[in-house]
Amino acid sequence: MDAEVYINEVRPKTLECGDRMLGSDWTYQQDDARPHTHRLTQEWCAENFPDFIFKERWPPNSPDLCPLDYSLWNELGQCMNWNRITTKATLIEEIKCSVAKVDKKQF
Rank of each mutant, 00 (worst) to 15 (best):
Q29P: 03
D25V: 15
E56K: 05
C79A: 12
P50R: 03
E16S: 14
C97Y: 09
R20F: 14
S24M: 14
P60F: 03
P59E: 04
W82T: 07
M80V: 15
L40W: 10
P35K: 01
W58A: 12
E47H: 06
D69S: 11
Y70H: 15
E47Y: 04
P60C: 04
T37A: 06
L91W: 09
H38R: 09
C79T: 09
L22Q: 03
D19P: 06
A46N: 07
L15W: 09
T87W: 08
D32K: 00
K88E: 01
S71R: 11
G18M: 12
S98R: 02
C97E: 10
M21F: 07
I85T: 02
A89C: 06
C66E: 14
D103I: 08
L68R: 07
Q29N: 00
I95N: 04
E56W: 01
C66K: 08
R11H: 03
G23T: 15
K101R: 11
L72V: 13
G18D: 11
G18E: 10
R34Y: 07
N61H: 12
Q30F: 12
L76V: 08
T27C: 12
C45K: 00
T27G: 03
R84W: 04
C45T: 02
W58R: 07
I53Y: 02
R20N: 11
L72I: 13
L15E: 09
R57D: 05
D32G: 12
S71D: 04
D103C: 10
I85S: 01
C17F: 11
Q78T: 07
R39D: 07
A100W: 07
M80Q: 09
C17M: 12
T90M: 05
V102Q: 00
K13H: 05
P50H: 06
Q42A: 08
T27N: 01
P60H: 01
I92P: 00
Q42S: 06
T37Q: 05
L65K: 00
D103W: 05
V10K: 00
I85V: 11
L72S: 03
